[in-house]
């Protein structure tokens, strides 16, 4: 790491500097300019790590979306599809305004393309030590509003499996409370199959209950249900049973949350031509656009006026 020219912190400063949290790539590049060394401008990793995500948030408040669900349920595919779909033009009223992790999106979309050499679309499972944050900037197609930053949390499904079965606590996944939107992912392919439905349902309920523990999320408003591979539901031999299961899950979520929980259906990379690339993403982006931020408010301790004048009410 390049030496910083910042003055030494005072003796009683906390042992960790904010710089550890807010590592700014430009600082390294500017320092490199001073030393004459060849230094990378920014990370060529395929996603942002925590300090880089924080450095981005320090400039402009991003909307943070985390999709929570088991391994293989399609979380990464949703993120890849947003990028791949924008690669063909604006959609859903949004246009691509930039990304710090284009390489990350390209790496993920690679498995859907002929350049991968595969004969059918595929997506690599996210690993625990993969950098988690994908970044994309969107602007409304009419350019009426400023561009908005989205940080997409691409986490290993194993974290959520452990959360669901109580091997992990929500406090160990602090990104959950930071997220403005948490999409609990339900694997539509499993719901569609009678033999897999019960297990998928149970796992969803476990995860739901864990996510709705007080203080796990920024608020119950953060939660939505995201059904991936919803094209499978249309082909299901027991479509009615599948729909009934989803309705019950939605009801359960709404009851636990104390408010209606939205349920979105996606089929982002279907083999069925009725479901084009990115099917359902417009609704997801609309949801993110309508409420880009979820703030956690806390009132001060109540103040009891001490005088009659202070207690006066009209």
């Amino acid at each position: 790491m390049t030496e910083s020219s910042e003055p030494a912190p005072p003796e009683d400063a906390p042992s960790a500097r904010i710089d550890d949290v807010l590592d700014t790539p430009e600082t390294g590049a500017e320092a490199a300019g001073e030393t004459g060394a060849e230094e990378p401008l920014g990370s060529r990793a395929t996603a942002l790590d925590a300090p880089e995500a924080n450095a981005l948030a320090a400039r402009r408040r991003p909307t943070v979306l985390v999709l929570a669900g088991a391994v293989g349920c399609g979380k990464t595919s949703v993120y890849a599809a947003i990028y791949e779909r924008l690669g063909r033009g604006p959609f859903g009223g949004w246009m691509f305004a930039g990304s710090r992790t284009i390489a990350g999106f390209e790496q993920r979309c690679h498995w859907w393309r002929t350049s991968s050499g595969g004969s059918e679309p595929y997506m690599e499972h996210t690993r625990a030590n993969d950098l988690p944050w994908l970044h994309i900037r969107l602007r409304d197609s009419e350019s009426r509003e400023p561009a908005r930053d989205l940080l997409l949390g691409d986490f290993d499904g194993e974290f959520f499996d452990q959360l669901a079965d109580n091997r992990m606590q929500p406090s160990e996944l602090p990104f959950l409370r930071r997220a403005d939107h948490v999409g609990l992912v339900i694997d539509g392919e499993h719901i569609a199959k009678v033999t897999a439905r019960a297990a998928e349902r149970q796992q969803t309920e476990y995860l739901l209950e864990r996510l709705l523990i007080p203080d796990a999320l920024a608020g119950t408003d953060a939660l939505s249900l995201i059904v991936t591979k919803s094209d499978c539901l249309a082909r299901s031999r027991d479509a009615e049973g599948a729909e009934s299961c989803l309705a019950e899950l939605n009801q359960r979520a709404s009851k636990l949350a104390g408010r209606p929980v939205p349920l979105l259906r996606l089929a982002v990379r279907s083999q069925d031509p009725q479901f084009p690339l990115g099917h359902g993403l417009e609704t997801l982006l609309e949801m993110l656009g309508l409420r880009p931020a979820l703030q956690i408010a806390a009132d001060p301790e109540p103040y009891e006026p001490a005088t009659a004048l202070g207690r006066f009410r009209a």
Binding site: V21, A58, P174, R177
Partner: peptide, 26 residues
């Protein structure tokens, strides 16, 4: 698990994405 969440950390999230214990203290 549920306890009183830290109001400072809840507010600082407006300017930070991932807040560590040390980062919060700083």
């Amino acid at each position: 698990e549920s306890g009183v969440s830290d109001a400072f950390d809840d507010r600082i999230r407006e300017g930070v994405v991932v807040i560590t214990e040390d980062g919060s203290a700083a």
